[in-house]
Amino acid sequence: MKERKILLAEDDEMLASLLQFWLEKEGYEVGIVSNGLEVRQSLEKALPDIIISDIMMPYFSGIEVVGHIRNDLKANLPIILISSASNDENILNAFELGANDFLSKPISPSELLVRVSRALKAVNTS
């Protein structure tokens, strides 16, 4: 079975490393970027199967990344947002722009796995 590619955008190195370890252990191919600009550059090269992005990031926020993917790239790939500040307005804004799911910190790696697999299944079904 072909490995699913995940682009993980997280500025906290330790958390990014932990999630990468956990996701790779579950059989995903994980690429890590630490800010919004790197996300854009990475997306120009190749589109992953799913994006997991923090909202609060340098250069471009997670919400701006969602807007860029949906409006500029017109890509339909699933996006899961992570944030420590559960700002309702931000979350609603992200969902309006086309985010598929949201997780608030502290996150449970097991829960993240479940959500990732569900989002990928939803894309396959559609």
């Binding site: 330790m14 958390l15 932990l18 910190k105 502290p106 996150i107 449970s108 097991s110």
Partner: peptide, 15 residues
């Protein structure tokens, strides 16, 4: 320091 930082970001069994 690393463990204390990480403790804030993870929950559940990992914590």
């Amino acid at each position: 320091e690393i463990l204390l930082d990480l403790e804030k970001d993870v929950s559940g069994e990992t914590r």
